[in-house]
Write a protein that binds this DNA or RNA. Structure first.
Lengths: 340, 340
DNA sequence: ATGAAAGCGCTAACAT
DNA sequence: ATGTTAGCGCTTTCAT
């Protein structure tokens, strides 16, 4: 049985309240002599405070929950989640909060979330890319547990920290357009994912805005993987009306496209400009480093966590915040060239 | 104020124990009619059990702690940790345990660990690559909190789940030797890291075992990064007595070496065979996919977590387990060729 | 300056 | 079959 403050009190023939105040350094003053003796006995008996008991009274766990998106298998292998977690951990550290990661349900199951988040072990939660309808959102908010979202779409009534997908695509397209490209193809991600959808929409908006002929078949959705990108690109590059610029919705697919181009003898960037999105390490490691878009996911998650703690401490609901993207120009893009 | 079982009891004019048993489905039998009414009122009042209160009595948190290695900044960006966490999460899911990630101290600070792990919020912990002397280990064990290690070195008195670094290098070296290579260079990692040290030692052991002349300067330590690998490789490849096989302690450095080779016009694998370690995505994505060594980190972490739970549930201290590595042959290796 | 005692919400031993 | 009650270890109010 572990040592408790009762043991210390008995040992010194003083009351538990005195021990408690001595151990916590207040709020009630304790004479230095008494305090020192308490501290010493605590060490001798190897006393370790039971934070569970404490949090029952204080109603603070000094821990924040993290609810990842998607399934429950191998969640930590997602690069996006890694960055988000890293940011959350950075801020949690600074704020002296521990992290409880809920991997037993996804950020789309409001009922499960409500149960777990309200069970007293966390004071609030960061929801990563949740997909909740208004009803579920309401249910969650009804628990009174402060929550913030790290997500590419806004969730009504919850402070949302998001990156600007549309801006990223806009930057890529403007850059390519400025280089002289007039013939584009968009290799999109799975359209049931918000990021993928928002990037496609921004692509289409740009194409329309510069008055390019509205052509069907100037995009195709794939699955955000290298293999997926390679497959689509192989078909595309064999076409006679091959585009001069291939705008991919993430770096993995761009790497796949690069591989397809290499197999088919299409020179990048001379005969084909290729762009990615997300600035993952893989896009920088390949033979032709990929022009891509940087999203400050770590910073977003850090900011979300700081905002969460302010809410936990009684502050008002934080405002949404949208973070700008940055175009990262590397070697996979150039002006279009008629003959090479 | 949140609903408690007391509220439900009052509402139905029954005792709290009946409510408790009804809610938990036992162990005391509760007539179905009563149980249904309890459940219904619970739902109406939006009752959510307080697990903090429960765990005070049951002395079980149904959560396991994870203590990452190294510093406290951007820990989640380590690929090794990602895989380890993924495995831990997989098993924790299956075993209905939540995860508490302690990022506020590293797995090398025994005193901090003892305090946090013994504070009642977790039932046990998985320590990732801890570096503890016997004294610290003893202190940790004295808390009585079950712990297991995911580590490349054994920690006395704690079940350790480890991969076989030496075996991996042995596999790489045997393969290269079998191809006909007799001139090797080892690009090592930081030698204060266990993995790096063990890989270097295995390399040296192999070189000696096949009776190759014991030459100084047949290895150099770098920092596990692409840049580090590139830098060392550039110097090395300019030497007149250039080796035919470059054995890198991880994939990142191998990718850097590939880049240096490309810059210097050294053909891989024709003029130089290059190998990596860890089988990270980047090693597969490059123009010349790298021959490497696979370590089943996810599986190791899964097994460690399963063993931890058995210990938590009163089982004996689990035995150590060493997992075999696998050689993954790709395009960066071939027989040495005199002239190309 | 310090002790006694009341709970936090729950489970479980003890009564009836 | 069900109610009463004693804690779990701690903080904090109330009393002295």
């Amino acid at each position: 049985m572990a040592t408790t403050i009762k043991d210390i009190a008995r040992e010194l023939n003083i009351s538990v309240s005195t021990v408690s105040y001595a151990l916590n350094g207040g709020p009630r003053p304790v004479p230095p002599t008494v305090r020192d003796r308490v501290l010493q006995v605590a060490r001798e008996l190897n006393y370790r405070p039971n934070r569970v008991a404490r949090s029952m009274i204080t109603r603070r766990a000094n821990a924040i929950g993290v609810v990842p998106m998607g399934g429950t298998h191998n969640v930590f292998l997602s690069p996006y989640l890694q960055q988000a977690l890293s940011g959350i951990a950075n801020s949690a550290n600074d704020l002296h909060q521990d992290l409880v990661i809920f991997t037993r349900f996804s950020a789309s199951d409001a009922e499960a979330m409500a149960c777990y988040l309200a069970d007293g072990r966390v004071d609030g939660a960061v929801l990563i890319a949740p997909r909740l309808d208004d009803d579920s959102l309401g249910k969650l908010r009804a628990t009174g547990i402060p929550c913030v979202c790290v997500s590419s779409v806004h969730h009504e009534g919850m402070p949302t920290f998001t990156t600007d997908n549309a801006m990223g695509i806009q930057q890529v397209m403007s850059y390519l357009y400025g280089l002289g490209h007039r013939s584009f193809f968009h290799l999109a991600g799975p359209l049931d994912m918000d990021d993928a959808r928002l990037r496609l929409e921004a692509y289409q908006r740009f194409v329309r805005s510069v008055g390019l002929p509205d052509q069907a078949g100037d995009f195709e959705a794939s699955d955000f993987t290298m293999i997926g990108g390679e497959t689509v690109a192989r078909d595309l590059l064999a076409r006679s009306d091959r585009p001069t610029a291939l705008v991919c919705a993430n770096d993995e697919m761009a790497v796949g496209a690069l591989r397809a181009a290499s197999e088919l003898g299409v020179a990048v960037p001379e005969q084909l400009s290729v762009t990615g999105f997300d600035m993952t390490p893989i896009g920088a490691a390949v033979a032709t480093p990929i022009t891509t878009v940087y999203q400050p996911v770590v910073e977003i998650a850090e900011a979300a966590t700081v905002a969460l703690l302010a809410m936990i401490e009684g502050g008002p609901v934080a405002p949404d915040k949208v973070f700008p993207t940055e175009l990262v120009v590397r070697s996979s893009t150039s002006r279009p060239q008629e003959d090479v």
